[in-house]
């Protein structure tokens, strides 16, 4: 049984580890901050991977090596060793807290400061079960929204309850696709109208809950053009699995054309 256990534990360990590295599981990353997040992942992955393999290999070895041979010899009589306890306490503390110390600046860089001045503003609104994106237009101001004006069945500005009586709302544009110019910092405002949703863009390594009652400010910068999927990552009801959207990153010029066309549509 000892040998069988050793083989089972080792096989599980090596197969699990193999499939972690045999395939690139992560989606292609396109945001400015993704390399830092991915780097911290890799560092943690190597550290934890070494510990995982070492611990499982040791476990398999120990159960096989110290199996009962049925002889008269007794097991070793030991209640422990304080030096060893101290050693592995200090080593694991250094490992875990060290990783934390290395990773913390990445989080700080992501979330401790607001978007650069001059970043383009987009409001992201989640409602059961769609994402809406609002652009402030040339005045760079979002118009007022009023819950009593909301009508999701009409889509567009009406879905968000944008109050057309507000002058700032005149040039607001609402889209079901998140159009963004490449290489430009985006100042996101996240809102939710009904329940909590979570704005998840795997390619951007970005996720943030949109919470009813809160206006959450975030920022990111896409660095490659293309279409990237947006998913909802917080359970929001029966249509959660199909609440998704597209983030379309285009050249600055294409973006300007798109926005101008949408503004023209409004007139």
């Amino acid at each position: 049984m000892g040998l069988a256990l050793l083989l089972i534990i080792w096989l599980i360990t090596f197969l699990s580890s193999y499939f972690f590295v045999a395939h690139t599981w992560w989606p292609h990353a396109i945001s400015a901050s993704a390399p830092y997040i991915d780097h911290q992942w890799h560092l943690t992955f190597i550290a934890m991977g070494v510990v995982f393999i070492a611990a499982q290999v040791a476990l398999g070895f120990v159960v096989w090596r110290y199996r009962d041979h049925g002889d008269a010899a007794k097991a070793s009589y030991s209640h422990g060793n304080n030096k060893l306890e101290l050693t592995w306490t200090v080593l694991t503390a250094i490992l875990f807290l060290g990783l934390n110390a290395i990773g913390s600046p990445i989080w700080a860089a992501e979330r401790f400061h607001s978007a650069d001045t001059g970043a383009m503003k987009v409001e992201v609104t989640g409602l059961q079960f769609a994402w809406y994106f609002r652009y402030p237009g040339p005045d760079n101001k979002f118009g007022r929204t009023r819950p009593d004006l909301e009508d999701a069945s009409l889509g567009g500005l009406s879905a968000l309850g944008v109050d057309s009586a507000d002058p700032a709302a005149k040039d607001d544009v609402v889209s079901g696709v998140l159009f963004l110019p490449v290489n430009r910092e985006v100042d996101l405002t996240l809102r939710a109208q009904d329940v909590i949703h979570s704005f998840f863009v795997p390619a951007m390594r970005f996720k943030q809950d949109a919470v009813p009652g809160l206006m959450i400010h975030m920022h990111f910068r896409p660095e490659q053009t293309g279409d990237y999927e947006i998913a909802c990552a917080e359970l929001c009801g029966l249509g959660h699995y199909k609440m998704h959207g597209i983030m379309r990153v285009v050249s600055e010029q294409e973006y300007d054309q798109w926005l101008a066309a949408r503004e023209a549509d409004k007139q």
């Binding site: 699990s16 992560w26 830092y36 997040i37 911290q40 992942w41 943690t44 992955f45 550290a47 934890m48 510990v51 995982f52 611990a55 499982q56 476990l59 875990f96 990783l99 934390n100 990773g103 913390s104 990445i106 989080w107 992501e110 979330r111 979570s198 998840f200 795997p202 390594r205 970005f206 996720k207 990552a233 917080e234």
Partner: peptide, 23 residues
Amino acid sequence: FVSGGLSGPFLAQPAIDIPLHDT
């Protein structure tokens, strides 16, 4: 316990938790 425990330090770091949270 080892296998389940070692995925903890990924999720415990908020920067890595950004892509992994709720997956």
